[in-house]
């Protein structure tokens, strides 16, 4: 057989594995390669968020005599936002399943619900921002508020781009059908959307819940 086997080493660990993407198995299929690349992007995006989180954590007490999180945050609003994003993550998963089964109408329906919940989240967040700015608690008031608007705004920007992406994906399915290229783009969208919900867990815990303690 091979030298690895002759030395009593496990065959798979030394490049003799016949599976795709391993050893002599040739490259993995494109869906796996594309998704893995996008997975690496998501992880680097989370590293970007971690830097903004660290900034927020350092500056969260620096209110410069202005309002603190305790004065500003409305937990009821945050709970509704959280519910919207969590449900949209769920419907996005359902969309992945029905699009894998190549059912167009159910895919559009799940995408529409995902979009509506994401848009509701954004609406609530923007309302909160405008309300805060109206009451003299804009990003220029204190280091705490600068960090708050940067962190929560960065997440909101991601959600905005996710919504645009979702519309583009539905247009692609409508015009081109369930092609492999379209399918792995839709899969990357699903990864992105689930990742945004994971980041939101950190936002509502660290910014809002710890902010009102």
């Amino acid at each position: 057989m091979s030298t690895a086997a002759a030395k009593g080493l496990p065959d798979e660990a030394h490049g003799h594995d016949g599976a795709a993407g391993h050893g002599s198995g040739g490259p993995a299929n494109t869906r796996t390669v594309v998704s893995y690349g996008f997975w690496l992007f998501i992880l680097s995006d989370i590293v970007l968020f971690s830097a903004v989180f660290a900034t927020y954590a350092v500056l969260s007490g620096r209110t410069a005599g202005g309002p603190s999180g305790k004065d500003l945050f409305d937990l009821r609003n945050v709970a509704i936002e959280t519910g919207c994003l969590l449900l949209s993550s769920f419907t996005c998963g359902i969309m992945s399943l029905v699009s894998d089964a190549k059912r167009p109408m159910q895919t559009y329906l799940a995408a529409a619900v995902t979009f509506a919940l994401g848009a509701a989240f954004l609406y609530l967040e923007l309302n909160e921002f405008i309300d805060m700015a109206d009451h003299g608690a804009g990003p220029d008031r204190s280091a705490f508020l600068s960090a708050f608007f940067t962190l929560v705004g960065l997440h909101g920007t991601h959600v905005t781009f996710g919504l645009i992406w979702l519309v583009v994906m539905m247009a692609q399915i409508a015009t081109r059908g369930f092609r492999p290229t379209t399918m792995w783009r839709l899969h990357c969208f699903a990864l992105f959307w689930h990742a945004l919900d994971i980041i939101w867990i950190a936002v509502f815990t660290i910014v809002y819940l710890m902010g009102v303690l």
Binding site: H22, G25, T32, Y36, F38, S96
Partner: peptide, 18 residues
């Protein structure tokens, strides 16, 4: 095979996925 799987993929039916 034991090749790699795309992140986020799982090999299930529609029902068990839901």
């Amino acid at each position: 095979t034991t090749g790699d799987i795309a992140p986020g993929d799982n090999n299930t039916t529609l029902l068990s996925g839901i």
